[in-house]
Amino acid sequence: MDELLPRLPFADWIDTGVDWLVDTFGTVLDGFAEVLEGIVEGSVDLLNLVPSILLAFIFALIAGVISTRKIAFFSLIGLLFIDYLGYWYPMLQMLTLVLTSVIFALVIGIPIGILSSQKAGVRKVVNPILDLMQTMPAFVYLIPAIFFFNIGVVPGVVASVIFAMPPTIRLTMLGIQQVPKDLIEATEAFGATTWQRLFKTQIPLAKPTIMAGVNQSIMLSLSMVVIASMVGAPGLGEEVYRSVTQLKTGVGVETGLSIVIVAIILDRITQYAGNRKKKLGGNTL
């Protein structure tokens, strides 16, 4: 076999390609990394200026406005508990990292989802890439991310964005495609333009499905924080990672629980935001 088919050096090619990218776009990427790092760290510092108890109340208030009182109450108790355990600052770091990643994932993912729902050609390209993004072990993203952005919060954000984006794209696409054909026909019969059809009918009707995608993206992004800590991303994940390497079960459980609490809060709020309109008898398909 070896004589017949010489082994192609794929790994070498990829390394060379990454090196070339780093050499060529290094300065641009460094600039981007610095801006991103500044935003993330600035946000953390800003949030940290507010006393933790007050901030917990503010978060609970926001939860109450978006969702229900019950969820707001749980948020308050959960956040105060994290504060009591002494993981407030790492929690803020993690939260900022997750929210930053999710915002990027949505800003890039939703337009791609919309575009691929409209054009079969785009769909054909996007779908296999999404399969790749979702099945590739998450650790693999970290390696080039280190080359491009060094270690720290930025490669963590980048890896989280890549890992968290697919559900938003897929569910945006699905939600728009699931809008009943007769409604699309009605928009056309009344002379709607493509934009009008998209923004007045398809996207509003797809909103619950898109929100389910957002919810999934947040959860995936949360699951990335521990992995991202391996490249130096700060936060609760870092604490978990440390407890693993030092075999500290107690700390591991405490930090793990804190992550779970944040996850539940984010999950309930976004789930509720997605399903809210159903109660009015309005937004069901």
């Binding site: 409604l183 026909e185 009605a186 019969a189 009344f190 002379g191 007045k200 009918t201 309109k277 937004n283």
Partner: peptide, 27 residues
């Protein structure tokens, strides 16, 4: 040309009056 559909094809996220306004809205 106006059109009326077999399964009504009303927009579930809009109220009755918003549905009725639809043709004028997009104009």
């Amino acid at each position: 040309i106006g059109m009326v559909f077999q399964n009504f094809a009303l927009f579930p996220h809009k109220t009755i009056v918003e549905n009725t306004e639809y043709g004028l809205e997009i104009q």
